[in-house]
Design a protein around this nucleic acid. Structure first.
Lengths: 124, 124, 124, 124
DNA sequence: GTGGTCTAGACCACA
DNA sequence: GTGGTCTAGACCACC
């Protein structure tokens, strides 16, 4: 896990996002312990407060649980809910692209072509 | 043109974006005069400075020109450049979606399906 | 004579400067008549007010004289004064360059080299 | 650092310029923290916004980085780029002087003499 | 503590 | 009329 201190994205958001991705990817399984706040802060070269805020955010979203004195753990979620979240994470920017295309008076056919070009690039 | 004062996006960014879209869409032709800073500020119920900042940003990006004492005008841009910018505006979120998918360990085939579903929804 | 309406330099300044240069260059001799304000305004595609302001500026600097009902004329200046002004016009930016070099902690030797390089480029 | 409130040069430009010079001179090293916006504003007896605008301009030019909640820092630039910028800062007014000389029908030899005289004055 | 945004109102220069 | 600059003071988000 790495942080970009110059990015316009807040540090705590960067942490939140990376942990969330790991959970959605399945790299962090439900029930698994997260690194302690202090440990992670040291590892990332940032302050304890920043990591704390990231964990707080994740807890608010129901992704993790905090058990006093024991640490933080990945929340036990249904597989279906996880899958939905995964899909939504990708659908959101796709929707944004379509909205932008509409605002610019682009036809859906044009967007489809742009998307096809992009996929080809990826496959190279 | 309308502003959402509750949006997390700064007002001046909202203004910048909408004018940029209008130019890319062709609704504002090169050489055409933009509404005066004061007039637009009054129309949007915002401050003169907020509009000015939006115009300043557009000028920096080369989208508009400002002539002291006369007003602001859409910059004379090559059509090719305009088209490139149009494409990029849609490509950017599409790229973001692909990057997100990769981070989540999704296959390109899955992304293609999500995109197809979205387009179907749109056509309804 | 041409004007750049998008330049940050005010239109009236652009006019003032070009007439001044013509006088210093000797293209406009002392006593010679300048084009009428209206004529010049039309030629430049600008307003009468702007040209008037340029002429006013030149009169204030003693470069031209206005004779009611007759028009404007290049002022009769001593040749020595003209020569001094010519030198000063070039010395001013040279001084600025030296001042800038000092502020950046550059040695005079370095500046001399930069100047020599520039002259070589010119001779090509 | 000092400001001249009567100068035709905007205050924020004066600030921008002085900080830029300090960086090019090497007085402010890459990574070094700049004074906080509020602190500098108080020190200069000007408004917070004026300083902020100066910093914004420096950031756009890539001279400094700003990190939310931490402050502003001199950007890590390659030494070569710094040197190029240094040279250009002095070359620009030199070029202007040559252009002016040409407009006045002066020979390059005359300009060379003017430059030599200036350097002599400096050495006194 | 830091920077980011926004307001209301003033004064000046330009066309 | 237009844009360009500056002020004083407010509220928010981040670290």
């Amino acid at each position: 896990m790495t942080l970009s201190p110059t990015s316009p994205i807040p540090l705590y958001d960067q942490i939140t996002k990376q942990i969330k991705d790991a959970i959605l990817r399945g790299d962090l399984a439900p029930g698994q312990a997260l690194p302690s706040i202090r440990q992670l802060a040291q590892e990332l070269g940032t302050s304890v407060i920043t990591v704390k805020r990231a964990y707080l955010e994740l807890e608010r979203e129901g992704m993790i649980l905090t058990r006093q004195g024991l640490g933080c753990f990945v929340a036990p979620v249904e597989k279906g809910h996880l899958e939905t979240t995964r899909r939504e994470s990708v659908l959101a920017p796709l929707r944004q692209a379509l909205a932008e295309a509409k605002r610019l008076g682009m036809t859906m056919e044009e967007v489809r072509q742009l998307f096809a070009e992009l996929l080809k690039e990826e496959e190279r």
